[in-house]
């Protein structure tokens, strides 16, 4: 191997940091995004718990976050990040803006997946005497599952890209390594390895996600 052992360690650490940032942010985004998307969908004019004001406010907030470029969002919420993570620098700190951006991103994707569930199915459940919670748990979420999984895949892939930017606030990770060694210290082989790794990871996630969607959809 033409990488020094020290460089191999750096690479391994960076890969771990990227994995941590992506997975933690994605986990938070899924956990927060699904209830928010359900709330958006339910409070919509044709939803099962119509509420114009809630729907409007939530929609505006989500769109506002989505329209701020990630690099600016990161800087803009530094005080919040410091309050939550105890520091504004480092991998843990980078998870905060990543999670916020990913949540706003995935909420819209989840909402689209939920909206694609045939209204007739909700109606059938209502006619059976289903409560609103039962409609969510027995109809909306399970029927939207393929779309929800596809949304998670897209979010994970985007997070890999965003996490590289998080290197700018000392988040570490593969993107950061590539910039610092590959670019600033003229080590093209490091850059090459980073790029190949990122491509493989993204491909792998997409392939797995697609396979899962195919497996669970019964169309």
């Amino acid at each position: 191997m033409w990488l020094t052992p020290a460089m191999q360690d750096l690479l391994l650490d960076a890969a771990n940091e990227t994995a941590l940032m992506v997975l933690a942010a994605a986990g938070i985004a899924i956990a927060a995004g699904l209830p928010l998307a359900l709330l958006l969908q339910a409070t919509a004019p044709d939803g099962i718990a119509r509420h114009a004001a809630v729907n409007r406010v939530l929609g505006v907030v989500v769109n506002a976050i989505r329209s701020v470029p990630f690099i600016i969002l990161m800087v803009a919420i530094v005080p919040f990040t410091r309050a939550v993570a105890g520091s504004s620098i480092g991998t843990t700190a980078a998870i905060v803006p990543l999670a916020i951006a990913a949540t706003a991103f995935i909420v819209r994707l989840f909402e689209t997946a939920l909206r694609d569930v045939d209204r007739g199915l909700v109606e059938a459940a209502q006619a059976m005497g289903a409560t609103r919670l039962q409609i969510v748990t027995h109809v909306l979420v399970p029927e939207a599952a393929p779309g929800l999984v596809a949304a998670i895949t897209v979010t994970l892939v985007s997070l890999v890209g965003y996490s590289a930017m998080a290197g700018a606030v000392g988040g570490g990770g593969l993107g950061d390594l590539g910039i610092r060694f590959g670019y600033q210290r003229f080590m093209p082989e490091v850059m090459a390895i980073v790029v190949v790794l990122l491509v493989l990871v993204v491909q792998g996630m997409q392939t797995l996600g697609d396979a899962l969607v195919r497996r669970i959809s019964r169309k």
Binding site: D118, G120, L121, E123, A124, Q126, A127, M128, G129, A130, T131, V139, P142, E143, A145, P146, I216, S217, R218, K219
Partner: peptide
């Protein structure tokens, strides 16, 4: 009220033009 209506609805069957079956069940 909503709960009582749901109880009544359980005693009424409904059949739809486009079947409205859950694709993943």
């Amino acid at each position: 009220d909503r709960a009582a209506l749901n109880t009544v609805r359980r005693r009424i069957g409904m059949v739809f033009q486009h079947f409205n079956l859950l694709a993943r069940r």
